[in-house]
């Protein structure tokens, strides 16, 4: 029987249990790494680095986790801050983060869809990208997105509406396998 997140979190906080934390990482790694791939233009190496940093930060901050939000939402909040911080540092260093995503074995229509969508999303501002991904892909509510991104509810709605409009233009005439 699966142990629920709260029990695992309690074990990490009170007993500093690495085994419990490893279980949490295993539980959320795919979801978070996928989201970060979508948000970084399918740059797998960067997405995995950000995911790793997110989990390490989460481990350190876990005693402060109140449990009033879902663990996944709390994790996404850390991931978003990590991503924003990374892109800010990268732009300060004037290092290009627009590297070509690494091609992997999955090349069917759905694989192409994931990559093309990620590449199109990469052209949106970070906040719009995150809001759109959380709303349309992770099906978070406006309130959850507002909590994760720490922005007002109205701004969330604006980001989603503008992001959708922009994405619609970017993907006009899109066919699987060809990037907008």
């Amino acid at each position: 029987m699966d142990i629920d997140d709260i029990t695992l979190i309690r074990r990490v906080v009170t007993e500093k249990s690495h085994r419990a934390f490893a279980e949490l990482v295993k539980r959320y790694q795919s979801q978070l790494r996928y989201s970060l791939r979508q948000l970084t233009g399918w740059n797998e190496a960067l997405a995995d680095d950000l995911a790793q940093e997110t989990f390490i930060k989460a481990y350190q901050a876990l005693p402060g986790f109140k449990g009033d939000a879902k663990f996944s939402s709390w994790l996404y909040r850390i991931a978003y801050n990590q991503m924003v911080s990374h892109f800010r540092k990268a732009s300060n260093r004037e290092v290009s983060t627009d590297q070509e995503p690494v091609e992997t074995v999955q090349q069917d229509d759905h694989g192409a869809l994931q990559r093309d969508l990620a590449r199109a999303m990469k052209q949106l501002p970070e906040a719009q990208r995150m809001a759109l991904h959380l709303y349309l892909h992770r099906e978070c509510s406006h309130q959850e997105i507002s909590d994760i991104m720490n922005i007002p509810l109205g701004t969330v709605k604006t980001h989603i509406a503008r992001g959708k409009d922009q994405l619609r233009q970017l993907l006009a005439g899109w066919q699987p396998g060809e990037t907008a």
Binding site: A22, R33, D48, H110
Partner: peptide, 14 residues
């Protein structure tokens, strides 16, 4: 995209 979200195998990530 959501329906066909791939499971990313751990492969040493944890």
């Amino acid at each position: 995209s959501r329906e066909f979200e791939p499971y990313i195998s751990d492969e040493g990530f944890t």
